[in-house]
Simulated assay, not measured.
Amino acid sequence: MQDYRSNRERTEKTKAALIAAARALFVEKGYAETSTPEIVAAASITRGALYHHFEDKRALFRAVVAEEAMAVTRAVEQATPEHLAPREALIAGSNAYLDAMRITGRTRLLLIEGPTVLGFTEMKQLDEETTTLTLKQGLEAALSHGRKSGTPVDALADILSAAFDRAALAVDAGGDVDRYREAIALMIERIAD
């Protein structure tokens, strides 16, 4: 049992080191300019260990992006406890999304490099499993609370998700986060009314 646990711990430690090193390099240099020898050197791991854990550089990149998406989802979920009214939860969640996307490099990884490297379909699937799922749940609660059945929640979530992403890109480029928070809150208020 001890060997199994130590092997599992070593595996997780190696994967975490690779993901952390890759994240730093992908943020600094971009996916295309980052080589696997650079990643393994930064992680102090052998190249064989990289390919033992990840099929290729793209698979490692996907792991980095998935970890970033999960971090954003956790931030949104922490900001939206169940006791909040649906409308307030949507606003708190959107604010948490903007805050989470302000982590250095996250916008580049999730909104620029991710779609370029992984493609729209794969990024949309990842998004559906993370932040968009949380958004859909919030919209369903807000709209059912306001008795607006029949609203195409999936399409509405796609549109709002795109608006949130655009706001995150604008804030990352130096835009005033408070103005975007205000605009998003206004949009949510109108949808929920």
Rank of each mutant, 00 (worst) to 15 (best):
residue 79 A to D: 08
residue 101 M to Q: 08
residue 12 E to R: 15
residue 85 A to I: 10
residue 129 E to T: 09
residue 130 T to W: 09
residue 48 G to A: 14
residue 3 D to T: 07
residue 93 G to A: 11
residue 159 I to M: 14
residue 52 H to Y: 12
residue 35 S to I: 03
residue 37 P to R: 04
residue 173 A to I: 02
residue 48 G to Y: 05
residue 22 A to E: 10
residue 36 T to S: 07
residue 113 E to K: 06
residue 106 R to Y: 05
residue 12 E to A: 15
residue 163 A to L: 09
residue 187 M to K: 15
residue 138 G to T: 01
residue 93 G to D: 06
residue 72 V to E: 10
residue 111 L to H: 11
residue 16 A to F: 07
residue 79 A to C: 05
residue 114 G to C: 03
residue 107 T to Q: 15
residue 130 T to H: 14
residue 90 L to M: 09
residue 89 A to T: 10
residue 185 A to D: 11
residue 129 E to A: 14
residue 155 A to T: 12
residue 61 F to G: 01
residue 45 I to Q: 09
residue 163 A to Q: 11
residue 155 A to D: 12
residue 152 P to Q: 12
residue 110 L to F: 14
residue 118 L to D: 03
residue 129 E to P: 06
residue 71 A to S: 13
residue 88 E to V: 10
residue 81 P to E: 05
residue 120 F to T: 10
residue 48 G to T: 08
residue 13 K to W: 04
residue 47 R to F: 00
residue 116 T to S: 13
residue 49 A to R: 05
residue 178 D to P: 00
residue 58 R to H: 03
residue 169 L to Q: 11
residue 21 A to F: 04
residue 168 A to T: 00
residue 21 A to D: 02
residue 15 K to P: 01
residue 151 T to D: 07
residue 37 P to E: 01
residue 186 L to Q: 13
residue 4 Y to C: 01
residue 142 A to W: 02
residue 156 L to A: 14
residue 145 H to A: 08
residue 42 A to Q: 08
residue 149 S to P: 04
residue 67 E to D: 10
residue 17 A to L: 04
residue 148 K to F: 08
residue 95 N to A: 15
residue 77 E to I: 10
residue 63 A to P: 01
residue 162 A to Q: 12
residue 141 A to N: 14
residue 110 L to N: 11
residue 126 L to G: 04
residue 114 G to W: 02
residue 109 L to M: 03
residue 154 D to C: 02
residue 185 A to V: 10
residue 190 R to S: 08
residue 111 L to F: 14
residue 188 I to D: 06
residue 97 Y to M: 13
residue 8 R to F: 12
residue 118 L to F: 03
residue 45 I to T: 04
residue 175 G to A: 15
residue 133 L to Q: 14
residue 44 S to A: 10
residue 145 H to Y: 06
residue 57 K to N: 05
residue 10 R to T: 13
residue 35 S to T: 15
residue 180 Y to I: 00
residue 19 I to C: 06
residue 145 H to T: 06
residue 56 D to H: 00
residue 160 L to W: 04
residue 78 Q to W: 03
residue 51 Y to A: 01
residue 146 G to A: 12
residue 87 R to Q: 15
residue 100 A to T: 03
residue 157 A to T: 05
residue 18 L to W: 03
residue 9 E to I: 04
residue 17 A to N: 09
residue 56 D to Y: 00
residue 149 S to T: 13
residue 2 Q to K: 04
residue 22 A to I: 08
residue 4 Y to N: 07
residue 37 P to C: 00
residue 128 E to W: 00
residue 117 V to K: 05
residue 190 R to W: 05
residue 1 M to N: 08
residue 76 V to I: 15
residue 159 I to N: 10
residue 6 S to D: 08
residue 67 E to M: 00
residue 65 V to F: 02
residue 177 V to K: 09
residue 6 S to Q: 11
